[in-house]
């Protein structure tokens, strides 16, 4: 294949990766930014979203789009509810102590993974895409559904941005993030904000998973890579910067796709990871972060 189309394909692929990554990372960024806890179980919420999407879409017969849409609504709600329970039962009792929450969320990771293995099984299971339109370009074919993921993700990101910057809920969240003690003094129920943020973060991961599951199957170990990549994106973007998270997601997604055009795949991964690490070495606060807090 000629170089131009090859690059186009790599860029498209990179954008799809970025779109899903941005949503997942945004969820982590909220939890990380507002609550200051490292949620190791974030990837498992992602996995739960995908597994539930499989369960819901197979339970609903008829056109695949019906099952998919049901999953898109229900799976995040269920995951959000689970996260809420986990937050109330465990994290709150730990006073969000950073070290204790790491152990606790590792515990959650084990529990969620084991339950998925027990009830869902070890196999990788596909979910049928809501539509399967193949876009025929002069050089290669491309999945129409994949392009729709980019659009859906962009819409959801915009919606989140709107909530965060233009609504009272967003204002409360930002106030809590900025200084939780002062927020408390001003009568903001910090406790409930934390619960809501934790649930919202999990829901964003679940939505991302539902979107991706028609192209990459649900599997009980699928949570690890999104977790690691999300951490990277959040920190590279700059803690607490929505814009930074988005830019970093696009940067990492695209670089992963495009570097693979020039180097052998494993070498490409090495170079991409090293480059991103170096960004952080020379700009520790991240691309859009303010000086360390």
């Amino acid at each position: 294949m000629a170089f131009g189309p090859h690059l186009l394909l790599a860029a498209l692929e990179g954008l799809v990766t970025s779109a899903v990554l941005a949503l997942t990372a945004l969820g982590l960024s909220l939890v990380f930014g507002v609550m200051r806890v490292v949620n190791v179980a974030h990837g498992e919420f992602f996995m739960l979203g995908a597994v539930l999407a499989w369960a819901i879409s197979t339970a609903i017969s008829g056109h695949p789009a019906l099952g998919f849409l049901a999953a898109l609504v229900l799976a995040p709600l269920i995951v959000g509810a689970i996260a809420l329970v986990a937050e109330r039962l465990v994290l709150r009792r730990l006073n969000y102590n950073p070290e204790a929450t790491i152990v606790a969320t590792i515990g959650m990771l084990y529990i969620i993974q084991q339950l998925a293995l027990t009830f869902y099984g070890p196999g990788a299971r596909p979910v049928e895409p809501p539509f399967s339109y193949r876009i025929l370009l002069p050089w290669f074919g491309y999945s129409g559904y994949k392009l729709s993921i980019i659009a859906a993700s962009a819409f959801l990101l915009l919606a989140t941005w709107f909530v965060l910057t233009r609504t009272k809920i967003g204002l409360i969240m930002r106030a809590t993030q900025y200084d939780s003690e002062t927020a408390q003094a001003f009568g903001i129920p910090v406790d409930r904000v934390y619960a809501g943020v934790f649930a919202l973060g999990a829901m964003l991961a679940a939505v991302a998973a539902v979107l991706i599951v028609p192209i990459s199957q649900a599997h009980y170990l699928m949570g690890q890579d999104p977790l690691l990549l999300s951490f990277i994106v959040v920190i590279i973007g700059g803690l607490g910067s929505l814009r930074g998270t988005l830019v970093a997601a696009v940067l990492i997604g695209l670089s992963d796709g495009i570097i693979s055009v020039f180097f052998s795949p494993t070498l490409a991964k090495i170079i991409a990871t090293l480059l991103v690490a170096m960004v952080l070495v020379f700009r520790p606060q991240g691309l859009f972060g303010t000086a360390s807090r």
């Binding site: 394909l9 790599a10 290669f140 052998s264 795949p265 991964k269």
Partner: peptide, 20 residues
């Protein structure tokens, strides 16, 4: 010969390397 890294979860970007 196209070697795909074990951590990969999408593959389309490697297909252009398949000779015509």
């Amino acid at each position: 010969q196209i070697a795909i890294p074990p951590t990969e979860s999408s593959f389309t970007k490697y297909f252009p390397q398949i000779p015509a």
